[in-house]
Design a protein around this nucleic acid. Sequence first.
DNA 1: TTGAAAGCGCTAACAG
DNA 2: CTGTTAGCGCTTTCAA
Lengths: 332, 332
Amino acid sequence: MSATIYDVAREAGVSMATVSRVVNGNPNVKPTTRKKVSEAIKRLGYRPNAVARGLASKKTTTVGVIIPDISSVFFSELARGIEDIATMYKYNIILCNSDQNKDKEIRLIQTLLGKQVDGIVFMGGKIAEEHIEEFKQSSVPIVLAATVDEQNQIPSVNIDYEQAVFEAVSHLIETGHREIGFINGPLEVPINGKYKLNGYKRALAEHDIPFDETLLSVGDYTYESGKEATEQFLNQEVKPTAIFVDSDEMAIGAIHEIQDEGKKVPNDIEVISSENTRLVQMVRPTLSSIAEPTYDIGAVAMRLLTKLMNNEKVESSTVVLPHRIDFRNSTK
Amino acid sequence: MSATIYDVAREAGVSMATVSRVVNGNPNVKPTTRKKVSEAIKRLGYRPNAVARGLASKKTTTVGVIIPDISSVFFSELARGIEDIATMYKYNIILCNSDQNKDKEIRLIQTLLGKQVDGIVFMGGKIAEEHIEEFKQSSVPIVLAATVDEQNQIPSVNIDYEQAVFEAVSHLIETGHREIGFINGPLEVPINGKYKLNGYKRALAEHDIPFDETLLSVGDYTYESGKEATEQFLNQEVKPTAIFVDSDEMAIGAIHEIQDEGKKVPNDIEVISSENTRLVQMVRPTLSSIAEPTYDIGAVAMRLLTKLMNNEKVESSTVVLPHRIDFRNSTK
DNA sequence: TTGAAAGCGCTAACAG
DNA sequence: CTGTTAGCGCTTTCAA
């Protein structure tokens, strides 16, 4: 068994309260006493038990992070942003993969709350009533990262997806395209089915181009699904001359499919993606992309959470980060 | 404040010991009592406090994971393997990024131990004396994943790196190459500076090819560093006709540099990488690669840890997983 | 099958 | 500046 605060107290000839004070950097301790205690701590190799501390203080300095899939490039960059800021504020992270499965998400929230985390960063797809209910019952703050709550009841950090897609598609239209394919993510997720799709439609509408359903496809973010969607596009009646793709990985699939069909990017077909992960430079031609500040979304979400956990006042709990479009060689 | 076990006991008209029994599925409870308690639990929305439980039982059902960088494709796949198995055995994971910084690694181990994790999965570069010391002092088991301890004192899960590289390079030699470049990772890491390098040298030696220092380069696993190393190769006296690259991301950089110089892969220069992450199919030509079973290394490491935590006996605590080489289009 | 009671290791008033 | 004393919410003997 390792030493407890009581052992240290005895070794140093003081009370455990005093030991607690020096461990916690309380200034109300005479320097000589502090020294005595510090030495006893060192001698005994004492290390405070965070679980006991958590029980007594009702703070665990641990936050829960629920993420769809840590092995995705997009989410792992987000996670890194979260973790860096957490570390900066002395928190540890309990990381859980949800696979965007609602039941699993609910269960994870409960487990995390049971573990007495001081807060939760949640990333997911659709926020349903059940989520909101859990969130509201929670005694600790929760913030959404790269995840929208359509009713805007839960603190969150995002970009303006609608506007971002609007800009990308408008750019394509303004450089002469009229048949613009859109490989979106699953439409049940509001970011896709609502905001991004609306941005696409608004761009078309503002340029008097009718919406053509055959130019809308849905993938699952994988390379293969981007490739397949593009294959479909290339074999149909109305073929796109430009494609907007909702993820870098799918966009690379799209580019390869186009090239496999003997066509050139960007000369025959232009491609713009969304995410701007490190992948954009790993393909030829390099990928033009909506620069979602992935790492920053995570970092800002965690920072927001720290404020909420400390009851600091925040100007707005719904933060919208700026985006931009990085043009590379998949567009002219 | 949420309900405690005591509230439930009162509500159900039993003692807290009985509540504890039903919560923990102890069979020694009369069915009618069990029912009464279950209802009280539901009525009060009672959720056990894992921190209190952890303090009393000295088990937190939480394990620590120290990883160099969760945003790397390689490590995030490993992490997913770890997390999946952890979930399967009802453990949660505290995830910490170390950036391979020794001091940070040591500090993280101590923090994790302070949080009373039931075990640790460690991924890193070089295992120094200090690490070993911390590990040995630890009262909970530790296993290394994709990380070697040269003295084989700590349980670990790896592949046979030496042999894998030997096979890849031998293949290159046997298909006619004599000038084979090697873009390795940092040499301080034994996996690189010792095992992989030895595999490369052994392949040369067995085919009577002298080792040429100018054909060995060191990168930092990034796309850019792979590109730069290759640029250097292409501009030097002895130019490689084939390159073995220690990571997929660097290998993609290498391929692009070769192509940018107007040469063809694999016709002018062949490339084989190591890792076999999802990236291998996202480049043209697709990448031949040593298939390190990334996800499995994580999964097996976590499985091994569960056995160690439960004091089950394990046949060998140094496990070496099989590897193979997946040939794709970057080789002839 | 159930209950009483003693901790687990620490924090946080409250006194002094 | 330091010590005393309750707990925090749960598990775990030990008895009954």
